[in-house]
Amino acid sequence: MTHAYEVSRFLAGLMLLASFSLLCQDRLAAVLNTFAAQAVLLSMAVGWEAWTQDRPHLFITAALALGLKAIIIPVALRRMVDRLGLTRGVDKVVGVGSTLMIGLALTSLALLLVLRVTASAESFTREGLALALAIVLLGLLMMITRRSVVTQIVGFMSLENGLILAATGARGMPLVVEISVAFSVLIALLVFGVFVFDIHDRFEGVGVEAIERVRGDRE
């Protein structure tokens, strides 16, 4: 039984690593591939959970993660990138080194926070929750350190990977909620897509500088 915990911790740790890897990728194609890899890891983690804890409905979650986030969303984003003819480089606000340092600080924060707050809870849930919170925070960090809309979308999706990981660790999350979350993410992708194309048509670019100009943040 302890080995089951170790394997799921290992998979969650690999997901965290994929989040860090997302933060330091230079090219859009690499970002999308890393995101797909993280989704595959997520579905493996959820599937392992389903198998060892004998909670068969989690297999559906795993299949959803694999189908939607490892295949459909990366392919859709890839086509979006191709159609918009985006430059393949990733536009970063903060350099790789400082982003990684901030990421490490956020990870430590997440771990310390969860371990402190949930001192009385069951040990496995705490560890999974701490790693999931770290992944969520790294997704947020990715959203705020990128200028291109596509990488911000990837940041949002990887944040959502962390949420699903957390939901898997917590017992009693109804299947209906999980499925509806999964589909709402897909719908979010559609909405994002419509907006991205619209923004691209109107401002001839998908950087967020245009918004800053409207708000008066920048001369």
């Binding site: 170790e6 911790r9 740790g13 965290l16 690593l17 860090f20 330091c24 790789v96 080194g97 990684l100 990421g103 490490l104 990870t107 430590s108 771990l111 371990l115 040990s123 560890e127 701490a130 790693l131």
Partner: peptide, 23 residues
């Protein structure tokens, strides 16, 4: 090279965090 070695630092840091986390 700094990025490559920064990767090593990140690996090692996460390793420490995991060591703490998982007891």
């Amino acid at each position: 090279v700094p990025e490559f070695l920064g990767g090593a630092f990140v690996f090692a840091f996460i390793a420490i965090l995991l060591a703490f986390l998982t007891g």
